[in-house]
Nucleic acid binder design. Structure first.
Lengths: 135, 135
DNA sequence: TCTTGTATTTGTAACAATTACAAAGATACA
DNA sequence: TGTATCTTTGTAATTGTTACAAATACAAGA
């Protein structure tokens, strides 16, 4: 928990019990969780935690650049503490989101368009994961 | 309208008044519209049109490969009749979605991962469009 | 043309994710 | 200790989507 405390400060986020718990969960569970997954994982040990707090907290994390919000899942927002350049894969069957590392850095470069002011890239793959490939 | 009729048949979609109207709208308005935009655009001339029909119709179009559903917009599903390999840009300010053509075809190739059964790629850029760059 | 079975459309209600907002609680510092 | 500010909480409202059953349209055979 102490680590998450420090981690938050790196992004000038004032730590609180809730914020540290959320960041800690993200750092230890690299599963690109949804708000609900985070809430359900933390609420047993923090019974007074509110889902609104989880929403607020992640908004703040994203705003400060500590976390990336993924658009890959149309149903729910998903969050990734790894803000480095990498892609994602989502299984159409079970909905899990996997990291795809090792793509050429070139692919994450921003195309030169004079008109648009691009600040982020997201590369997403869809299909079936190993487990679900039988279905 | 006749064109959309023919167009639908190419994807073995049995045409109906509603389906042709929706496809016609998509072909003539390459703005990656949301369900609501389609519904609002068509309902004046088709007062009995139901939003459920728009949902059903687009589900069918996507299923038959006539249209691509985009994940770029977390708020609403967006649909694109251009199913060729190209990327998209969404303005964080006004929410419009632009096409990004001219990327290397290599970028749309599916990475060789033994485990995953990938069937689609989506490359999305985010930022501010020309109009909103002042804000 | 009528009948009958099937496909499509419609409207409403249910559901789920997110946002708005005001009250309660915690924190920092004079 | 008091006060101002920040954070959290819970509830209600909003919004996009889905489920479902009734109504309508369509197609093919009698």
């Amino acid at each position: 928990m102490y680590e998450s405390h420090q981690y938050l400060r790196q992004f000038s986020i004032k730590p609180s019990v809730q914020r540290s718990a959320v960041m800690n969960f993200l750092l230890k569970n690299r599963i690109h969780p949804t708000i609900d997954e985070i809430y359900l994982a933390l609420s047993p040990s923090m019974p007074t935690l509110s889902k609104t707090t989880v929403y607020n907290t992640l908004d703040l994390f994203v705003e400060r650049g500590a976390v990336r919000a993924l658009a890959i899942d149309e149903r729910n927002a998903r969050y990734d503490v790894d803000v480095s350049a990498h892609a994602h894969f989502m299984c159409r069957s079970c909905g899990t989101v996997h990291d795809i590392f090792g793509l050429k850095t070139q692919m994450f470069q921003i195309p030169e368009t004079t008109k648009l002011n691009i600040d982020a890239v997201e590369i997403s793959y869809f299909g079936k994961c190993e487990k679900c490939s039988g279905n």
